[in-house]
Write a protein that binds this DNA or RNA. Sequence first.
DNA 1: TTGTACTTTATAATGATTCTAAAAAGGAGT
DNA 2: ACTCCTTTTTAGAATCATTATAAAGTACAA
Lengths: 132, 132
Amino acid sequence: MKYLKKLRNSGLRPTKQRLQICEVLFDTEKTFHFTINDLVKKINKQSNNKISLATVYNTVHAFEKKGYLKQIPINSSQTYFDTNISDHHHFYDLKEEKLIDLDNSDIGPINILKKISGKKIKSVEVLVKLED
Amino acid sequence: MKYLKKLRNSGLRPTKQRLQICEVLFDTEKTFHFTINDLVKKINKQSNNKISLATVYNTVHAFEKKGYLKQIPINSSQTYFDTNISDHHHFYDLKEEKLIDLDNSDIGPINILKKISGKKIKSVEVLVKLED
DNA sequence: TTGTACTTTATAATGATTCTAAAAAGGAGT
DNA sequence: ACTCCTTTTTAGAATCATTATAAAGTACAA
């Protein structure tokens, strides 16, 4: 089992549900963006074992906390997640309502000049909205 | 009336409610960030005329559409708005759950190298998350 | 195998936002 | 001011993503 160790190492018991979700999320050529709703559809398409909605929420949040997923800051009624956890940014196509990755190399270096005392920068996220 | 013309010019009837909301939002020295909930509290503090929640939602969205307010892309259960409509960015203090403005001058120039054919850039928004 | 802590699950609860449709108010023309 | 028509407000219901609950199931160390 490919993800057994990964889960154990992060202190998450490798349950059937978590392993199946790992496959759907990480057994792909390319990384992708998804909502919980998208993910549930993918799970149901992949096999007949339905996983409870609550478990999908729990698992996604557990994975995010462990750093296996990133939340994408965007104003939408649903929360978007990204299986691409590298340091990168996003285009958001307003018409199609779709996210597109924007690699760090596709953007000039970002230099935050202002400092807030007592605080350090955890992440810098750029959202570029696109229109026709 | 200070905001009568502003509203008329944008094709919004200057109702009592809209004028009052204008005062709360725009009659301030400094710009600020708020949620609908924050705004309702401010309105109720300022006067005894309660404005219906639905009207607050309608008005804020109308103002946003006219460009008098900006939505701030951030993952939160509530939507954040900004009365500062100039081109700028935000710090988000994860611990305090508070937004701090980051002027364009506080950040190096951002140069998006990747182009998406048929689309043009509408906005570039940077969110800098802060931790202790 | 047994005990215990962790997980899953169905379902209920929550809470922000949107919808509805009836009443109220703005505004142009008279 | 009066009328008419459109826009706006409103209370309450509806929606919908997400979180909470608590009972049943499972992993795993001893």
